[in-house]
Structure formats: structure tokens, C-alpha cells
Amino acid sequence: MDNLLDRALGLDGRGDRWPLLGKLVLVEDCVETGGAFVVHHVIKRFLSPQPSGVTNHSLILVAFSQPLSHYDRVLRKLGCNLVAQRDNNRFLFFDMLNLRFPDKHDAKTGSGILVSLFEKIYNAVRALSAEKSWVTIVIDDIALMEVVANGSSDSVLDFLHYCRTLMSEFDCSVVALNHGDIYLSMEKPMLMLNLEYLSNILVRAEPLATGSAVDVHGQLMVLNKGENDRQGTAGSKIHNFHFRVKENSVDFFYPGGRG
């Protein structure tokens, strides 16, 4: 049941705790190879019924790039009914897609939108953890959040900092999608460098060097920085493998190891 991605993310443990709690997972993709499927995978794993079933799992999806109908259809094929989860109050959808186009005279500037968004998230997380629920905040995606913030990457970074502080206050984790290739041409992409530094797990989706293929859709690099244990040694691990996205699952396999 466990696949390579689960193992790389540390989701294969049999512990009671959701392994990503208190962690920031950053997914980076590029135009040629989308990384949204990684986000879908984590959502599915997080919301699927747990064997222990002691604690509730609640997910907050901050969607800048797609409407709810898209996520609903995709996740339903993966075996996870978002609408039902929403009715159970275990799934909150923050629709940021339909934000109004800002006028010149708009009082509410880009960073103002992010401030009010964070307030909403904060209140939701606080309410959910009062019910002894573990929370995952999913952000899809950061590049569009920058557009909403009118190019102010500082306010985006602030926003993510605040989300990170939630992790120490409550039992929650953050999963964010970003497009790495946007920043390649910049001299000092502070946003991306900061994010990569802050993240506990970095997942990078890339096309194959040999071009696109029908059987192999791309490769994933998962850098799991691990936990700082008492000796202070960070057991950071890099996993590399190929993947093939399907409607109801994703195949992960080592290069050439597809049987």
C-alpha cells in the first residue's frame, strides 16, 4: 500500500501521529511537469480514514488556482469525497480564485487581502484544534498568491511565516505548491530561497532529461530534512524516483524499475 512517495515523506510509519505535523512541505514544479498531483496525494492521505481513528483530521484548502469542482472531481477519482468531508466539517475550502480584479482606488490592497485571509485561517485553525483535531493547511499555489499580493513577495513571505508559527501553537502542518521555474532567471529570488530554507520537506517535480514519455511523466526529488533529534544530527535524506500520474492513483518507481 505504501509507495515511494509515502516513504519519502515519512507517511509509512505506523505511529498514531500524523507524521507531517509541525512540518512545512514545499512542492515545486515547472511548466513542463505539474506538481499538483503531489498535493492531491497528500490531501487524500490526510483525509482518508485512519486506522487508529482517535483524532480528527481537518484540512484547510486555500485555492488560488482552481475552483472547488476541479478538486472535487480529482479527489473523488482518488477515492476521497471532499463534499462529504466538508459537510462533516473536516474540510474547509477558501476560494481565492474569485477575488475581484483590483481597481486603482481599491482600499484593500494585495497585502490587505492576505492579512484578512490569515485571520480567517487562524480562526479556523483555533476552532478546529479546540475540537482536538489535527489540521493541514494546503496552499495552491504561492505564485498566484504573489499576484494577488500585487507582487509584494515580502507580504507572501510574512503570510507563510505566520502560517508556520501556527505549527508551533497548534497541531498543524502546511503544504504549499510553488512554481520553481519562475524564479530561475532572477538573481536573488528571496521568496524561493526563504521557502526552501524554511521547509522541512522539499518535493521537486521535474521533467525527464530525455524529454516527455507516455510511460514516465517525470521525476520527483524529495528532500526530507528530517527531525533534529537530541544529538543534533539532522538525518536529511534525498529520494529520487520517477512517477506516472493516473486518474485514480500515481505510480512511483525507481528509474528503470518499472515492472
Partner: peptide
């Protein structure tokens, strides 16, 4: 053709030639 629309699905469409 660099990207083919992927609405309501997560599966990329891989063309035989781009």
C-alpha cells in the same frame, strides 16, 4: 504544444509529438 488543458483531472496528456 507545451501544455494541454487539464481540467477536472490530474493526468497530464502526453502527446506523441510536441
Amino acid at each position: 504544444i507545451h501544455k494541454v488543458a487539464r481540467i477536472n483531472t490530474q493526468v497530464p496528456i502526453i502527446l506523441e509529438a510536441a
